[in-house]
Structure formats: structure tokens, C-alpha cells
Amino acid sequence: MSEALRTFFSPQILGPEIFYGSSVGLFLIGLYMILVKKNLVKIVIGLSFIESGVNLFLISLGYVWGKTAPILNKPELMKEPVKYAVDPVPQALVLTAIVIGVAVTAMALSIVIVLHDKYGTLDISKIKELKW
């Protein structure tokens, strides 16, 4: 069962479309939420969607057909790492980008809390300066 699932979800079957397609899709969903939604929390969620889209794109750049994670703890991996392991750089970059995304989300939520305290609402159209 798990083997079947693995083959189904392996990049060879799904192809680049699923990765690139969903990263663009996530980006668009996020943009839609930012532009249309009135609720501040939903806007923050939209921001996170955009970040996830970009992170997904970045991580899928590192994939190389048929290769495994770049942890060189097996003899054959140690001997010829390039032959068996994918590019580790995007993974390191995404790690950084994710933490930064968390930080931005936390900041955004704290500002939303203050706004809610002051205006008693999360509706962007009722907060005077934020209309655009």
C-alpha cells in the first residue's frame, strides 16, 4: 500500500507540472486573498500562502530525477554523493525562508491584535487608513 502511494506521489509520475503548478497556484490563492478578503487574519493567511508558493518553487528546484535526500550516512552515498543525492542548497535556503516566514506572520498577527484592540473589528473596510 505504502509502496503504491510512493510510486504515485513520486515526481516521476506527477512530473514538474504538479510542483511548479501548485507553487504558482498557491501564489495566486494568496494574492487573491490579499486583494479581495476583508478580514485582516485572512489577509495574513494569504501572505503565508504566497510565501509557501515561493518556498515550494525553491525546494522543487533542487530535485534531481531519481535521487535521494542529501544525508550521506550510507557507504555508497559517502563514496559518490553526487550520483545519489539531490542538490542540498535549496533545502538549506528554504529552511531559512520558512523561519523568516514564521517571523513575518508573527509580526503581522501581533499588529492585527493591536488593531482589533483599538477598533474592535477585524474588517479592513471599517479601519480608516487601510482602505485601498
Binding site: Y20, V24, L61, Y63, W65, L72, V82, A85, D87, P88
Partner: peptide, 24 residues
């Protein structure tokens, strides 16, 4: 715009000099 941009980035190909250096 985004779709037409991302499809021209090759997927699953070996391309990076830097990554190879790190692995080796």
C-alpha cells in the same frame, strides 16, 4: 506571467556547481 516564467526553469536536471561542491 508566473507560469510562463517557471516552465522555462528546467526541472529535475543537474545544474548546480555549488551543490555538487557541497556534496563532494
Amino acid at each position: 506571467f508566473l507560469a510562463s516564467v517557471v516552465v522555462s526553469v528546467p526541472f529535475g536536471a543537474e545544474k548546480t556547481i555549488v551543490g555538487r561542491y557541497y556534496l563532494n
